[in-house]
Design a protein around this nucleic acid. Structure first.
Lengths: 129, 129
DNA sequence: GTTTTAATACTAATTAATTAGTAGTTTTAC
DNA sequence: GTAAAACTACTAATTAATTAGTATTAAAAC
């Protein structure tokens, strides 16, 4: 039996750009991915090479339709962002999410009122369950 | 008059490792940085090259003591982490901090009660001023 | 069924990032 | 003052990441 090792390795920029689109579309042919890319769009083969790398790393899977492959994420966006955040919070907030929260609470960008709103929304959401 | 353009560019891994130490120490000679590095420690000259790159990019400054330079951060950790978070939240939470917090609130790691405590502490702190 | 189109695999070239060697200079130790 | 040590600048080599060309084959169009 083979257990999938959850060894987190950050995506490179090119890989992440592709994954963002794949997470959005759910499944896509290379052509679809290129279409979703902002200008200047990369060459079809560039995306093809990179998605092959992602497939080799088992970050995406694919189904073949004739000659063409339709790709889909094997790593979920939530899982990836959770792990990325964890790394980040570890490095920048001593591993404490509370510190992260209070950092933003102190920030001008986001007001206390706003945070209170978020919290009360959250409480409502939870109590509904 | 020259205005410092705050053009955020993520640090590379090697650069970030150095900055983490510099943010921790406040100011340091290359030797000190190497000392702080975990095993396997990089070569002195590797750090020297990388910190020169950081100096060229005006991410660190330095004072000369004879032949040796003592380096210090020009970019503050808070600023860097704020910008990194902003990028991240943009990409993974549609730019909404509320979504970020609710994401973590759903996680077992951090409870709403905990967040409320932080917020009320903050309000107290503010009203004291 | 032949031609055109679309797709991937494979390969190779380029650029970015990382590492560390060599040379030369200042400082320190004696 | 001379030798050794410490330090940086400059250079070069290596590795990682990115890009895209060429060859080939399957599918689609006719």
């Amino acid at each position: 039996m083979t257990i999938k090792k959850a060894n987190y390795k950050p995506l490179t920029k090119a890989e992440e750009d592709i994954m963002q689109i794949l997470w959005k579309l759910g499944k896509a042919f290379i052509k679809d991915i290129v279409d979703e890319m902002p200008e200047p769009k990369p060459h079809y083969n560039t995306v093809s090479t990179n998605i092959k790398i992602l497939a080799d790393k088992e970050i995406v899977g694919f189904e073949s339709f004739g000659k063409a492959n339709r790709y889909y994420p094997l790593v979920l966006k939530d899982d990836y962002s959770r792990k990325t955040m964890k790394q980040f919070v570890g490095k920048y907030f001593g591993g404490s999410y509370s510190e992260l929260f209070s950092f933003f609470a102190k920030d001008k960008d986001i007001s206390i009122t706003e945070l209170e709103k978020i919290l009360s929304d959250l409480k409502n959401e939870n109590s509904k369950k």
